[in-house]
Design a binder for these strands. Structure first.
Lengths: 147, 147
DNA sequence: TCCAAAATCATACTAAAGTATGAGCTGAAA
DNA sequence: TTTCAGCTCATACTTTAGTATGATTTTGGA
């Protein structure tokens, strides 16, 4: 509420300024209507300016909810990884698998053969106690092994 | 911008009113300072009132990020479904597929044959523009088609 | 009522996924 | 140095996934 006094003071000085000007030149060189009009315009502007400062306080909160995948600020749950005995390479395969890549695509990305990927994923399924890659991805996400 | 004219008109009428009053009683029964002060106060109020109408337009947008929780507060994005031309049955298959079920398991759950599920999923992949079920699940989650 | 879309299923494929087993290589720990 | 876990790859196989095509039946809406 400190601002109230600030604006009040500003208004006070403006009025003083007007009264001072009244006895100087404005009242002498202009008609009454012009003077009244100037006051009107001036204070309308002051009102708009000052008013906006207060009205801005009455913010209209528009809360827009945005769905965000927990991909950011993700860190692998190393504990679960160790618990299940999942090796580094197996985890690599799991990560790419979770991105929807085929075994062949994973093999290409990791510069290994298709058979190697199959071996890794097979052991992976055993450790995750699942049968299919889709289930593996689900389980891995639940365990915080992949984003 | 229509409101600008409305406020302008209101201001115009106020000025006319003041000029009218000027030749009636106000100017005769009060001193010039009082009259000027009244104009100042009046237009300050008008300014605050009018200005607030515009300022209110400036909404404060607060983006609240909500992490996607697999099960809670999920609702299917019907819009995307329609956009992609995914039928009800195809969506059923998609939902179960996203749960890591095999085609055979999906068939059992929906009381249809394995071939039917294959047909559905095949069309599904086409509509989702993917080749594999793992990619389909990914895309579906991104589009809010499945939890 | 009539029709197009949806749903169902089949056959016959090809492609990919997954399993089982064995083996060679390597680096680190015992 | 030996041992061992992890990584690699191969062969051979079974299972599941996915494609293509065609047919029949439901069904919701003009």
């Amino acid at each position: 509420m400190k601002k109230v006094f600030i604006y009040g003071t500003v208004l006070g000085f403006l009025i003083l300024g007007l009264k001072f000007a009244e006895y100087r030149f404005l009242i002498k060189s202009n008609s009454f209507e012009v003077y009244a009009g100037l006051i009107a315009i001036l204070f309308a502007i002051v009102g708009i300016w000052g008013g906006s400062k207060f009205v801005k306080k009455k913010e209209i909160l528009v809360v827009k909810e945005v769905l965000v995948q927990p991909t950011e600020n993700f860190s692998v749950n190393e504990n679960n990884l160790k618990q299940l005995g999942i090796s580094k390479r197996e985890h690599d395969v799991l990560m790419l698998m979770a991105q929807g890549l085929s075994n062949q695509e994973v093999a290409d990305k990791l510069f290994v053969s298709l058979n190697t990927v199959k071996t890794h994923s097979s052991k992976l399924f055993e450790k995750l106690n699942v049968q299919r890659r889709t289930q593996a991805v689900q389980e891995a996400k639940k365990l915080g092994l992949v984003p």
